Amino acid sequence: MAALKFCANISWLFTEMGDFPQRIRAAAAAGFRAVEAAWLYDCDAEELRQALRRTGVELVLLNTPPGDMKSGDLGLAAVPGREQEFRKGLDLAVKYAKALDCRRIHLMAGRIPVGADYAAVAMEMEATFVQNLKHAANVLSKEGILGLIEPINTRITDPLYFLHSPHQAADILQKVGHSAIKLQMDVFHWQIMDGNLSRNIRKYFPIIGHVQVAQVPGRNEPDAAGELNFPYLFSLLEELGYQGYIGCEYKPAGERTSRPPPTAHFHFPIFE
């Protein structure tokens, strides 16, 4: 059984280091061989490429642009009337992914309008999401890039996010019907929205294209006090044969970002 692989989410970790090239170097110094990030678009792609090349670190995931966050955007793929903006953002994400040899892009769904009733807008938003994902699948499959959709919990993190459960995501992926789009499993969100993690992981494992972890409810390190038994969950992923990276997307509890990453079977010195 191959050991699980972990990557640092540098939108959450090493933030004391300032810009993303510095965070890449810090992650490498801590022993990580891979990183992921939300949005890198304010940083020059060549500067990022050089930081990755010089450290030998791989970038395994980035997100599509969120839209205008000051106006309340958090992704555009499921937002009616914003299709051209989504496609423009997708093109930018692909440009960065190709420059940085990144093979996964999280296609952010977005939020329902403030004050809207979810049931009243859900059908139109889902239709928009499916249409945009089919377009993205055609674009990404030509580039050898995997698209991902991620349910985000609406109980703690974002009450307005459209895509909020693994079951909803799986139904949408079935409607898209393309192998270039898969499910991004963040166990933090899955536990908050649905629980029943063992069964859901087994059920949806064939369509999972990336995994992220954080303890519940504080969104801290996996060994922090909380609801989840990560040694068990990691054993389950190994049993199922998960081959991809596991993103460390959490808020460090204290001064921990300089510790080494996981290096041994279920021994996680970065969390100590």
Rank of each mutant, 00 (worst) to 15 (best):
L160G: 01
Y118W: 09
S165G: 08
R104I: 07
N138R: 14
T128N: 08
I105L: 10
A93K: 03
A97Y: 15
Y118E: 07
H167P: 06
H189N: 03
T157H: 08
A116F: 00
M125S: 04
K142T: 13
M123R: 15
E124M: 01
K175S: 13
A120Y: 02
H164F: 15
Q174F: 11
T128K: 01
P151R: 14
W190K: 00
A93S: 10
F162G: 07
I145Q: 01
D171I: 12
K95H: 15
D117N: 09
S141P: 00
S165Q: 04
L160Y: 14
E124G: 04
D117F: 09
F162A: 04
G195V: 00
Q174M: 11
D194W: 00
G115P: 02
I112W: 02
Q174P: 00
S179N: 14
P151E: 07
I112V: 11
V130R: 01
G177L: 08
A122H: 12
I156R: 12
N132R: 11
A169K: 08
L92D: 07
I156D: 03
A93Q: 06
V130H: 05
R103S: 13
I192E: 02
R104K: 14
L100Y: 10
S179I: 14
Y161D: 05
Y96N: 01
Q191N: 05
W190N: 05
H178R: 11
E124Q: 10
Y161H: 06
G144W: 08
N138Y: 10
M185I: 12
C102I: 14
D158I: 10
K175E: 15
S179V: 13
A116L: 01
H135S: 10
E150P: 13
R155H: 12
A119I: 03
A99L: 00
L100Q: 07
E150V: 00
A137H: 13
D158G: 01
Y161Q: 02
L160W: 12
C102M: 11
K98P: 08
K175F: 10
Y96V: 06
E126Q: 09
E124Y: 05
Q191T: 01
A116M: 00
D117I: 12
K142I: 05
M108R: 05
P166A: 07
N153H: 02
Y161A: 02
F129G: 04
A120I: 03
K182T: 12
L100K: 10
L183S: 09
L133M: 14
D101K: 14
D117P: 04
H167V: 13
S141F: 02
V176H: 06
W190I: 07
Q174S: 10
G195P: 05
K182R: 15
D158Y: 03
A180R: 14
M185K: 05
R103D: 12
H106D: 02
A136H: 14
A137D: 08
L140K: 11
A93D: 03
M108L: 15
L183T: 10
T157D: 01
Q168C: 02
N153M: 03
E124N: 07
D171M: 10
K134R: 14
E150I: 09
E150H: 07
L163K: 14
R155K: 13
A137M: 08
V187Y: 15
A169N: 13
V130C: 02
H189Q: 03
K134I: 07
L140I: 11
D101R: 13
